[in-house]
């Protein structure tokens, strides 16, 4: 018998839509916790696999948070926004850890990650951190393009899904995505 019932995620999404800042934070917190927990469980091999894939994590988090309730895509858009940020933070934390291990590691050169981050997450840490930095700049200068880039890059939404999440047209998203890619590519010194 549950004594305390946390507000269902759909309620939080509704609140987020009304512009409730604390609801936004709550959504972000829950999404991050969920994604982190799922990622960690994957790492510990408690879930079937040894390694994981960004999409799988997001997917599981989504199902976990939403259950099987049908979610309106526009509110799910907020979830994906939060998920993108969560994934981003997770990847950046991981990349930092890996970079630190690489520099100070000493013993051998084999990654000996304490948290056992999986190879899928092991994008090149330098690149990951550089992308993160550039993304922050992009957020300042071109927030919408950055939003698109984050949704695509961190949660794997398609152009179509991104368009629906942000309630704008496909073509706009496509153009934003290409712009963001070009911009980031240029910012990362052509590589």
């Amino acid at each position: 018998m549950p004594v305390y019932d946390p507000p269902p995620i759909t309620r939080i999404l509704e609140l987020v839509q009304t512009g409730d800042e604390s609801a936004r934070r709550e959504l972000w917190r829950r999404t991050y916790d969920e994604i982190h927990a799922i990622a960690a469980a994957f790492m510990r091999r408690e879930i079937a696999g040894r390694t994981l894939q960004t999409t799988v994590v997001v997917h599981e988090a989504y199902l976990k948070l939403f259950g099987h309730a049908c979610a309106d895509f526009r509110s799910a858009g907020h979830f994906f926004s939060a998920a993108a940020n969560a994934m981003r933070q997770l990847l950046v934390e991981h990349a930092r850890k890996r970079r630190a291990a690489k520099r100070g590691g000493g013993i051998g050169t084999v990654p000996l990650d304490g948290d056992g981050f999986a190879a899928e997450f092991d994008r090149d840490p330098e690149l990951e951190l550089a992308v993160n930095e550039a993304m922050t700049l992009l957020e300042k200068e071109h927030p919408r393009a950055a939003e698109v880039a984050k949704l695509r890059y961190y949660t794997g939404l398609t152009v179509r899904q991104t368009a629906e999440a942000l309630a704008v047209g496909d073509r706009t998203i496509e153009a934003d995505w290409r712009f963001a890619r070009a911009w980031l590519y240029q910012r990362l010194g052509g590589k």
Partner: peptide
């Protein structure tokens, strides 16, 4: 920019049903 630059992961296509 090469094709694999910022390759997005696969879309969570379980959403396809949820799309309006």
């Amino acid at each position: 920019a090469p094709d694999d630059f910022l390759t997005p992961p696969d879309p969570p296509s379980f959403l396809s049903k949820a799309t309006p």
